[in-house]
């Protein structure tokens, strides 16, 4: 069953067309990679799918309900978004930062219960920063901050997850850790990844959406979509496919 779907979706940034007549269905258990050049509109598309930006045309359905008819709280209970950048203008502890992920599940006057704290601590443990609960958010490194943002996303416990460059600032080990966390135990979830690393996309995702920057898009299973020709056209840079132990890898020439 599709958790999130788009119907004749058109997204535009000023006069630049990101996509038109896009009909996508993101089903439970699917991991999607969204690939494209810098500035082609990947983030804009992601924010549009999250209902944060108005679409230029078409509509988006969340569990078969038009996203515009839902209030933000109802959307946030089902769909979470990892942003590319985190803003920390005010001091706060790591635990407080992760607990905001529970916000859509709590009533206005309700305090986080022990259960909420348990969920947050599990997320923190999962990203490998268990001992960071009382650390100040402003003292963290870029990679640590990124993992805290991921823990906040996990604490929101939604079936649909839109993650914008989740491996930003991460070392190669952490990149795989994070992709592993987001792609395991997710039979009832769908996750959309904006990525710049084709090989991470190919390893962890089963579907791909290519955004060419001129309104043209291509989507389907990674096997069919991630090819030497498509990627060369996508990045306007020669890309070569090589095979090692029967796994495809893509390298830039």
């Amino acid at each position: 069953m599709s958790l999130l779907s788009s119907h004749n979706l058109q997204v535009q940034i000023a006069s630049t067309l990101v996509c038109k007549d896009l009909n996508l269905a993101f089903n439970a258990g699917e991991n999607w990679a969204i690939l494209g050049m810098n500035g082609c509109g990947k983030t804009t598309l992601l924010h549009t799918l999250a209902g944060l930006l108005p679409a230029a045309g078409g509509n988006i359905s969340l569990n078969k309900t038009n996203i515009n008819t839902l209030c933000r709280r109802e959307v946030a209970q089902q769909l979470s978004l990892l942003m590319q950048h985190q803003e920390d203008h005010f001091p706060a502890s790591v635990m407080e930062t992760i607990l905001i992920g529970r916000h859509p599940h709590l009533k206005n006057w309700q305090w986080e219960s022990d259960e909420d704290k348990k969920i947050a601590l599990e997320a923190l443990t999962l990203v490998g920063l268990k001992n960071f609960t009382n650390r100040s958010i402003q003292t963290l490194s870029g990679g640590e901050r990124q993992r805290i943002a991921l823990a906040t996303l996990l604490t929101q416990q939604t079936k649909i997850r839109l993650v914008d460059e989740p491996v930003n600032h991460l070392d190669i080990h952490q990149q795989h850790e994070v992709m592993n966390i987001l792609t395991s135990n997710n039979n009832d979830m769908t996750t959309l990844f904006v990525l710049h690393d084709i090989n991470l996309a190919n390893k962890y995702c089963d579907h791909a959406l290519l955004i060419f920057g001129n309104g043209e898009t291509l989507h389907g299973s990674c096997e069919n979509i991630l090819t030497q020709n498509n990627l060369t056209k996508l990045y306007q840079h020669p890309i070569k496919e090589i095979s090692h132990q029967e796994i495809k890898y893509f390298i830039a020439n």
Binding site: L81, H103, P104
Partner: peptide, 13 residues
């Protein structure tokens, strides 16, 4: 305080 978009994505009108 985390930002407009983050707040909206966490259910704030």
């Amino acid at each position: 305080i985390r930002g407009d978009k983050i707040a909206a994505s966490l259910g704030v009108n």
